[in-house]
Every structure is written in C-alpha cells, then in structure tokens.
Design a protein around this nucleic acid. Sequence first.
DNA 1: GTCTATATATGGATAGAC
DNA 2: GTCTATCCATATATAGAC
Lengths: 223, 223
Amino acid sequence: MSVPAPARRGGQPDKRRAIAQAARLVFGREGYARAGVDVIAAEAGVSKRTIYNHYADKEQLFLSVALEGADAVTDAVRVLMERHLRKIVDLEEDLTAFCLDRAQAVTEFPEHFALVRSIHAEVTRLPATVLEKWRAHGPPSAHQRLAPYLQRIADRGLLVLDDAERAANRLNTLTMNDVLIRSFYGALPLPEPTVRDIVTDGVRDFLRLYAPPKAPPQSREPS
Amino acid sequence: MSVPAPARRGGQPDKRRAIAQAARLVFGREGYARAGVDVIAAEAGVSKRTIYNHYADKEQLFLSVALEGADAVTDAVRVLMERHLRKIVDLEEDLTAFCLDRAQAVTEFPEHFALVRSIHAEVTRLPATVLEKWRAHGPPSAHQRLAPYLQRIADRGLLVLDDAERAANRLNTLTMNDVLIRSFYGALPLPEPTVRDIVTDGVRDFLRLYAPPKAPPQSREPS
DNA sequence: GTCTATATATGGATAGAC
DNA sequence: GTCTATCCATATATAGAC
C-alpha cells in the first residue's frame, strides 16, 4: 500500500487528485461496497479507465484515500495541540478548548470518518499489513504526539504524571471516545451542548486524576 | 421493524430460526453489502424464495437479526450484573471481575459485533426510526440497568454518587470503550493480558473518582 | 493518458409448479 | 410455504481507437 508516485510523464497530475477527492466523497457517502467506480469517475470528471490507470483496483483506491485522509486529520490535530497546549494559561480551560476543537474535528472531516466506519466494517477482510499501516496513521500516533505536551505541563508542576503516554490515553478516553461512540463515529453529530458537557466532564475528571494534590495558587502572603 | 410473528399455519417455524442464524453468520462474516441472500439461503438449508416469504427484503432481514443479537448481548450482560454486583465482598475486585467478563462478551458474540460494525458503516443510510430502536437496544439501556446496582452499592457507603447513571457511564467509558475501540469493536480481539490491564486501570481510576473520601476500614481500635 | 463501448459476473427479487 | 429456474439491473474490469 505504499502510495504510488503520481505519473508524471505527459499526464496531468491534477487528475489523480481529482480522483482521490471524488473517491473520498463517494466512498464516504456510499460506503466501500456500494460505491461504484462509475460514480467516482463521473464525480471526478474523468473516465473510468483513467482511474484504473492510476490505481490497480477499487480496493487500492479505497485504501490509498483512507490513509491520506487519516494523515490529514492527524495534521489538523497537530495544529490544535500547538494552538492550545503550547502555552498554558489556565490548564482546565486550555485542555477543554483543545478537546472541544478535537471533538469537533470529527464533524469537520465527515468524509473521512465515513471511511473510518467503512474500514471498521471491512477490517476482518483487510490484509494484516494494511491494518498495521492504518493503526500507525490513526489514534495511537495522536497519543504519542500528545504525550510530550502533557509532559511539559507536568514539568511545570501543573500535572502529576506516572506515564505521560498513559495519561494522554486517559485524556482521550475521558473526552473523545464518548463523543466518537455516541455519535457513531461522527455519522450522527451530537448537539454542540452535549459535546461540551462530555468534554467538560471528561477534563474535570482527568484533572481530578492527574492534578497535583493541593494546588497552592501561589498565595502572595506566606505565613 | 417490529419483529413479525413467525408464520404458524402449516409452515415450519424452525426454518425462520435457521434463516436468522444463517443470516447472523453470513452478515457477520461478509458485512451487509457483500452478503448474498443466496449464500444465506444455502447456509440455512432453505431456498431463497423461502427467505423472501419470511422477510420483506434483505434490509429487513438484516435489521431483524441485528436487533435480536443486541437483545442477546444485553441479556448476557444482565446475567453478569447479577453475578458480580448483587452481593459485594470487595468492591474493586467485584467491579473488575464484572468489567472483565463484560469486555470478554465482545469476543463471545463475534457475529453480533460484526453486525455492529456493519450498522456503523450503514448508519447514514438507515431510517431514523430504525436508529432509535437500535439505540434503545444498545449500550444506553445497559447503563440504565447498571445504574441501580451502583446506587445500591452507594447506599451501603462504598461509593459516593452524584448521579448514578452518569457514574455508570463513567465506568463504561473507563473500561469498555477502550476495549471496543482498540479491538475495532471485537474484530481484532486484544490479548487477554491487555484487556486485563485496561480494565484494571479503568476500575482503579473509577474508584479514585467515586470512592468515599477516606475509607475507614472499620478499625477495631478507636482512639 | 484518455475516452467510448463492452465483456463478464453477480446478486436482489420474482414467476409458477407443487 | 417451499422449491427450481429465471429476469433484470448493476458493477468491476478490459478492449481498442485516438
């Protein structure tokens, strides 16, 4: 499943992107099995044969698009981390804002999460090598990138961490997972207030688990 | 989607169950779209026409089987609650045992969770009325049944609950959800030690959130 | 590389006898 | 109600001209 290099020689590389985008749309809307290569070709404005010139078959096209989409989401989350977790002013507020934005990313990439649902449905039929790549592009990598941010926060004394990666996973569990499951992985987006409640509660409990024993708000009047 | 009453007049009601079982197997193995009514008929040992005599179409067959399967899982979980949570001897141990058994139910009903994955993939194409029924038969009902058990435990002073149903959801979030997501809803079962780690950690954190402030182990020597 | 046209297969649903 | 045989639509993939 290594992403094949776009054909350069004389061909229009735009077409390949047009195909990928159309495939993402149609696969997301119809699911893998129902999606017709015909429809994808029409949506992309190319011939069916052109698709088969760029991709070996329907399955390769699907997997290629799925992995690209996962990377796009991953990049978006990376941006959110930098925005909310680089400089902490109020830990609870910043974590909440981060998780809220992260949760809303689910509804901002609807085509991709439709692909995620299709992959879940097909997962028992996918080759092991493909699944490994899928795992590598997915949530686990997100945890690995979140952990250093939490570690930096802990180094400033705002959290007490035994294991930064485990804590990253906990934050995810307490906020994202509920949103994912209850929204059917974004298929039926939850009302914004509901998401806010879930995330707020999750962050609060996360801090109850990981906040320092008694946060002395740097009282300016020592005994 | 009301489950239609089996035809009695002269027909063999066994056939219907054979069809349902075969459908559960084939839908679980192939997914909704790939599953052929032909194959289901062969697996059930009946003719294709017989299936269409019992069920309006493929979709009705699928949904009927899915809801029945959800009820079966629900009943199994109900049994586990009675076994582990009716009489508490050691709260942490009992909760852990319950959640472990509950998590392993995912791998004990592989066909059903394969159906769950298919439903996720199809969820945007399902009628709203069907989705409501699906939700009603699924996890939310499990929370509602778990809550009273937690409430009884709290009444004995072993937990401090603000809202029993919220706590039930928390226990679920901290144990089941990770298992579900990381195993791709049971498609790639996690190693038993991994499940044990997840559940053990989850219950420990649950108790850190909901245990009474300082559990006095009824010390026999007051000041 | 791209297009039109087509081969080939499959699957949902039905007709009609028993 | 159940079976055998079949219709018809659809979909993947390919052939061959430009």
